[in-house]
Design a protein around this nucleic acid. Structure first.
Length: 627
DNA sequence: CTAGGGTTAG
């Protein structure tokens, strides 16, 4: 009896043309992965394939992302005048969406006589995932107009498009809606919502939403970590990472990518290496995103050879991989390496250079003292050679480059030639150059225009007053300071830090907070004598206060990077390299001090400031005194 | 059936 049944069964499945058995075979063939045979079967039949048959076919096509096969199924429905129900139409929509045929998906949606939450949401999220934010929003708007009720799936996806396409205003309105409908404590909705606030720079709001979530998971924690890291609030990012771990969650590869951004910012090489080890030991998927952030971390922590090794071993490099590596060379002032790598990138033709690539290349020319090469690359961009038209940022980069080289007049002319109005950033970098090269006339003009454009930015007042100070125009200095007191918010204070035994030691100018400050000051007194014997002459023009010379010298020795260097000398053993980091640009006097320091105490010194690296060995700096 | 977090720029 048993054998007999099996015989019958076999004969059924081996004679596909008999209309009697169609129904079972199609779905069975589909679930066995035999899609081609199922399609053959389909071709022999009419609308009697029915709901289950079509559903199975579409599922199989979706599984394999088999676009042409799916199109045949769709065509078959039309040819046989089969009228699919909302469910099947939605499956069709999802199929087209996942195959990146968004127009076809949209057509299916438009032609649906009855749309439900799932069909609306599937369309919105597909638009959102492929970066079509404004389309996503317009479908959402249409959904609201036609009385469609969004659910938690819809809200979880819509905030991403809000922030990308239309700023925070719309997002806030929708936020109001979800509070009314009680979706705001849903974890998917909440993490998307907090992410939106974080990306808009409203990190306090983001944190509040995070804290109000009834439960937390890796994704919501990662969202808040990434939010902090993207705003440069690196310590807060680290804190949240520790909290994630202490609450027993396992970081995933996205979490590590964001963590590494924060570690790069703080230049915590040891922690970065630890993170790298964890990733390898826990066998997390080693996606390009993660490798890119490792490349960035190593190069920003001064370890270019590790970065390059990772880069060389990548099986599949994205544009971001190339960009991260280019930026690494650029920050170390290695202009020729930047150009060499850029050439390789263009030769390889696997990925196209993007706007950031060209920015990195131009800034590489800038830091590497190769202005003329930079200018000719810029001309190439204008001529369409790289497929990237220069935007404001590229113009800014050229202004920065010319300014750094002391070609202030050219930089000024260049700004006048810009097709759009110069942004505050562009003017700011020219003002900075005027300060460095003591170009008082142009600096005065630019400075006052900048203050008109952004009166709240304290940095502008500071640089302008410094410029006046170095020209000895103390009355103007006082005027500018008075204006600043009236209008501006306080500027970020300069500080330097150094890592010692798993702790970051921070120093401000004339520090009064560090527990070992007395010891550091005593040591500073001692070494300043040795330094002077070795040829250190304090550069009093770096002091921007109208005080006597003795006072000026004292102020110079109080600079935060000198304190950190001195601490490094006390805290570490002979011959150990000292690595100091500063949140602002390093001053000329401190640079000179560090060079002589490295010679006198036989220490390699590595200094990373806001813009770049200085690797100092035996009194010679990798920047060749050009920065 | 539909959903959230990601790396590079200065």
């Amino acid at each position: 009896m048993f054998n007999f049944m099996r015989l019958i069964h076999r004969s059924f499945s081996s004679s596909p043309n008999s209309a009697l058995q169609t129904f079972l075979p199609i779905s069975q063939l589909c679930s066995n992965g035999r899609l081609q045979e199922a399609l053959l079967e389909m071709a022999m039949l009419g609308p009697e394939i029915g709901f289950h048959g079509y559903d199975a076919l579409l599922n199989a096509c979706l599984d394999k992302r088999a676009l042409r096969e799916g199109q045949r199924v769709h065509a078959h429905m039309i040819k046989t005048c089969y009228l699919p129900a909302t469910y099947l139409r939605t499956r069709l929509l999802i199929f087209y969406g996942k195959c990146d045929c968004l127009e076809d998906a949209r057509k299916v949606l438009d032609e649906m006589p009855e749309k439900n939450v799932v069909s609306w949401t599937a369309m919105i999220s597909r638009y959102s995932q492929t970066g079509h934010s404004s389309e996503a929003l317009s479908v959402f708007a249409e959904m609201m107009r036609s009385d469609g009720k969004p659910n938690e799936f819809t809200f979880a996806t819509v905030f991403t498009s809000c922030i990308r396409a239309s700023g925070l205003a719309l997002g806030k309105q929708i936020h109001g809606l979800i509070v009314k409908w009680n979706y705001d404590s849903h974890i998917f909705v909440g993490s998307s919502l907090l992410d939106m606030y974080a990306k808009a720079g409203q990190i306090v709001e983001a944190r509040e939403i995070f804290e109000c979530l009834p439960e937390r998971d890796v994704v919501s924690c990662t969202a808040i970590i990434a939010g902090y890291a993207q705003l440069g609030l690196d310590e807060e990012a680290l804190e949240m990472f520790q909290r994630l771990q202490s609450e027993g969650m396992s970081p995933n590869y996205v979490t590590y990518a964001s963590l590494l951004t924060a570690l790069s910012g703080l230049a915590l090489l040891d922690h970065g290496k630890q993170a790298h080890c964890h990733v390898l030991r826990r066998e997390l998927p080693f996606y390009a995103v993660l490798q890119n952030s490792l490349i960035d971390m190593y190069s920003k922590c001064g370890n270019l050879s590790y970065a390059r090794r990772l880069f060389d071993n990548m099986p599949e490099r994205t544009a971001i991989s190339w960009n991260a590596m280019l930026v690494g060379y650029s920050k170390h002032g290695l202009g020729r390496e930047v150009l060499e790598l850029f050439r390789l990138m263009r030769d390889e033709k696997r990925v196209k250079p993007d706007a950031v690539t060209l920015l990195a290349v131009l800034s590489g020319c800038s830091h590497g003292k190769m202005e003329d090469t930079g200018l000719s690359i810029f001309d190439g961009m204008v001529a369409g050679e790289y497929g990237i038209k220069p935007d404001t940022e590229h113009y800014g980069c050229i202004v920065d480059m010319l300014g750094r080289a002391g070609r202030i007049d050219e930089a000024f002319e260049f700004i006048k030639r810009m097709p759009s109005k110069p942004t505050a950033g562009v003017l700011g970098s020219l003002l900075g150059a005027c300060r460095v090269h003591l170009s008082v006339d142009i600096g005065e003009y630019v400075g006052h225009r900048l203050i008109e454009i952004e009166p709240e930015n304290a940095g502008n007042y500071v640089i302008l007053s410094n410029l006046y100070a170095s020209a000895g125009r103390w009355e103007d200095v006082n005027n500018v300071r008075a204006m600043m007191m009236q209008k501006a918010v306080t500027k970020e204070p300069g500080r330097s830090w150094i890592q010692h035994e798993q702790t970051l030691h921070y120093f401000h100018a004339n520090d009064r907070t560090h527990p070992r400050r007395e010891e550091v000051l005593a040591k500073m007194k001692e070494i300043s004598i040795k330094m002077k014997q070795a040829g250190y002459v304090p550069d009093l023009s770096c002091v921007l206060y109208d005080v006597d010379e003795e006072q000026k010298e004292k102020m110079l020795l109080g600079h935060s990077e000198k304190l950190a260097l001195t601490f490094g000398l006390i805290a570490t053993g002979e011959g150990i390299p000292i690595r100091v980091f500063k949140n602002l640009r390093i001053c000329v006097d401190c640079h000179n001090f560090a060079k002589i320091f490295s010679k006198v105490f036989e220490r390699e010194v590595s200094l990373r400031d806001k813009n770049r690296f200085h690797q100092i060995v035996k009194g010679i700096c990798s920047c060749r005194d050009y920065w």
